[in-house]
């Protein structure tokens, strides 16, 4: 489904649901980022369900990002209990939704890089055990153009032989804290460059040795080319299995030794 269609559908859901929500859920707390688009974000991306601004959801990104095709973002919602889903979005991006992740047994934390088209609030909304979206964010100033710049892959065909190639490595940071850094070769074309259709990783999941799922991700076009993810969990000494695919049906599976 195209992103505008996805947003439109979310909007419909929001309109349909709005009558059933307690008025207090929409208590109009001022957007700390003072964005003219916040109401649309709340209704569209968050489906109009209850949302609160919550500093416990941290979005770390440079205030001034020189490279709008590779803006580093770290989302940390580990201060909240039982986070089921986190959605990351950028109010002023032509494609608003960046990714969603479902921490499952991993920490509610994700590092990655995003393409930004212009200066924008960059937000993460974490849905916790209370069913409410807890929204954090920060403003990123950038020269812009990140979504309409051709991918580096567009300049040559070399990437084709390495598409979906995975490299990854685990670091044991503490007795109960393991970090995975994962890189997947993919152009992540936005579809906003003339003649180059949207071509992006769609779903990625990570399982432990016993098949237990650590985290699932749904990725959209704004995730930067050749995505690199930072993920943390409490399962030391395991060979992880990472599987995924893109919106053209190319699948991959890779094992990452401890």
């Amino acid at each position: 489904m195209s992103v505008p269609a996805r947003l439109a559908m979310s909007l419909l859901v929001a309109l349909g649901a709005s009558g059933t929500l307690p008025a207090s859920a929409f208590a109009a707390a001022a957007d700390p980022l003072a964005s003219a688009r916040w109401e649309e974000m709340r209704r569209g991306v968050l489906g109009g369900t209850a949302a609160v601004f919550d500093a416990q959801v941290k979005v770390l990104a440079p205030a001034n990002a020189e490279n709008p095709t590779q803006v580093p973002v770290t989302v940390d919602a580990t201060a909240l209990a039982d986070v089921a889903e986190v959605v990351v979005f950028a109010d002023f991006n032509p494609i608003v939704e960046v990714l969603r992740f479902y921490p499952e047994s991993a920490a509610a934390l994700l590092g990655f890089r995003v393409k930004l088209q212009q200066s924008t609030p960059l937000r993460a909304a974490a849905r916790g055990a209370d069913g409410v979206w807890h929204v954090g964010g920060s403003w990123v100033n950038t020269v812009g153009g990140g979504c309409t710049a051709p991918s580096a892959a567009a300049a040559s065909t070399a990437w084709q032989s390495r598409l979906n190639e995975v490299s990854g490595r685990q670091w044991q940071l503490g007795a109960e804290r393991v970090r995975l850094r994962l890189r997947v070769v993919h152009p992540m074309d936005t579809g906003l460059v003339a003649g180059t259709p949207s071509f992006h990783l769609d779903d990625v999941e990570l399982r432990g040795a016993s098949g237990e799922r650590l985290m699932r991700l749904r990725l959209f076009e704004p995730v930067a080319e050749n995505p690199v993810f930072t993920i943390e969990y409490r399962a030391p000494g395991q060979t992880l299995v990472c599987t995924g695919g893109d919106n053209n049906g190319n699948r991959f599976s890779a094992r990452i030794a401890p």
């Binding site: 490279n67 950038t142 710049a149 580096a152 300049a155």
Partner: peptide
């Protein structure tokens, strides 16, 4: 990509 990379080269003073 190339284009913005060039555009971004010298840019650090985003707040003028």
């Amino acid at each position: 990509m190339i284009r913005w990379l060039c555009a971004g080269l010298v840019c650090c003073a985003l707040a003028l």
